[in-house]
Amino acid sequence: MPLNSFQLIKENFSKYYHTLGEDAFLLSLIRQREFGFILFDKKIMLRHKSFKSSEALKGFLISLAPSDAYFSAAFYERPTASMTKKGWQGADLVFDIDADHIPTPCNKRHDKWICSKCGSTDNGPSPKKCPNCREEKFETQTWICDDCLESAKTETIKLIEILEDDFGVMKSEISAFFSGHRGYHIHIENERVGSLNSMARKEIVDYVMGVGFKKQFHKLARNRRKEAKIDTVVTMDIHRLIRLVGSLHGKTGFIKTKASLVNLDKFDPLKEAIAFKKGEIVVNVTEAPEFRIGDVTFGPFKNVYHEELPTAAALFLLCKGVAQVVE
């Protein structure tokens, strides 16, 4: 990405963090959490950071304007120490539901693959072998649309039902978030659950996904079991860094936003997670499928020059790496 595109994104991210209230991060036990950041200039993770208050965290976000910001699901005695010396005290139980893990018909419309060898390309998920040169190595591009976000939401709702009905987790202990890109996060804060080790969490994952299910042990069962598709690694990892609530996603410029459990089915991430609501930016767009922001649909674009777009739409394309700023 050209330097000025980076700078423009950074400036806007910084401005956004400026407008935030200090309660925007919805963080408990802030002093015991580890924080991590990915910066636009260097694609490495800056981690083992800690903050005394939301105010300090906010200040850091304003001055660094990172591409992505994370906090640990775990709480530690010494959050800035190296991994083995941190002193693990517990961790929120976290679930990640991502459209990547759910086969949806819409990926035919907006995802695409390019063969690394011969450059052949087509829509949809990558095939096993390139139909042209038989090579098995591809670059892929994913996009978001209402359909894949909706299917992620459906899984999220199923998961919440399992957590409430089977695991007896109270609504007040469950928070649901739009991740800012292609999925949802569920955080559970409860002392008893928080102390569970990775092995115990693996059993929760297997239960939710139906892994290891044997019919012979369910002869007495009255109801059919519900299942939900989740990312297995995230839930099992008790040291995981999770995207910070209220922070911007570096691939979209959207906010990781809390979604109310009451009307989750009506929650519209492409409206609720929009950070930039004012102004326009002029960009050149190489290629982009159709997308929606708020009530407006944009694109599809192919080699469009000097296009004036609302800030949110322009930043989305810039973050996705399919547009450049026109000076």
């Binding site: 009905d165 089977d166 007896g168 693996k202 290891g212 042990f217």
Partner: peptide, 26 residues
């Protein structure tokens, strides 16, 4: 869970949570 995933129990399918009756956390 912390006990059913220890020792020999962790390898036995009948101790897996997915094969147990679980309702309201019980």
């Amino acid at each position: 869970l912390p006990n059913a995933t220890r020792g020999r129990l962790v390898h036995a399918p009948e101790w897996k949570l997915v094969n147990r009756q679980l309702s309201k956390g019980q």
